[in-house]
């Protein structure tokens, strides 16, 4: 049996008919075509699929699309305006906080939630706050610097 869900994604209202088993991340990628949210694992470990659900960073691989019925979702595609990047995106570029770019959308969504809860995080708090997001390229150091940089920008 399918269900009809209504939700707002990056400010746009969507209404879709979905199977209960459809994961939110597949809904975003395959139904809405928002492929910026990546999939890196199948055990809710890597954080590549992190999006905001009603303002909180969540792993979109561990939410069913039907659970997001009525929710407001923000994905990486909703972070920048057409002409300018979000301060976190700018900071990731300035600090070389990305290499292959695959973990980056999830990392930025997690970092954004982190900064909303803590405007001036210490290095240790950033490292703890991003422990659910894996990066194989950067060794995390420049990601930490990018979040520090963004915190200053957003202050």
């Amino acid at each position: 049996m399918t269900h009809t869900i209504s939700l707002t994604v990056n400010g746009k209202a969507h209404c879709s008919v979905v199977e209960p088993r459809l994961l939110l991340v597949h809904y975003l990628r395959d139904v809405l075509g928002l492929t910026g949210t990546n999939i890196g694992c199948d055990t809710s470990q890597c954080g590549s699929c992190t999006v905001h659900l009603d303002g909180e960073a969540v792993k979109a691989c561990t939410v069913l699309a039907v659970q997001a019925d009525g929710a407001t979702i923000k994905t990486i595609e909703g972070m920048a305006s057409p002409t300018s990047l979000h301060p976190l995106q700018e900071a990731f570029r300035e600090e070389h906080g990305l290499q292959c770019g695959y973990c980056t959308p999830g990392m930025i969504m997690a970092a954004d939630a982190l900064l909303r809860h803590n405007h001036k995080p210490s290095e240790a708090q950033i490292r703890q706050g991003l422990e659910g997001n894996m990066c194989r390229c950067t060794g995390y150091q420049n990601i930490v610097k990018a979040v520090q940089n963004a915190a200053l920008k957003m202050a």
């Binding site: 792993k59 939630a113 982190l114």
Partner: peptide, 9 residues
């Protein structure tokens, strides 16, 4: 428990 995103859900 887990990480921030896990704790949020």
């Amino acid at each position: 428990v887990g990480d921030p995103a896990v704790r949020a859900r």
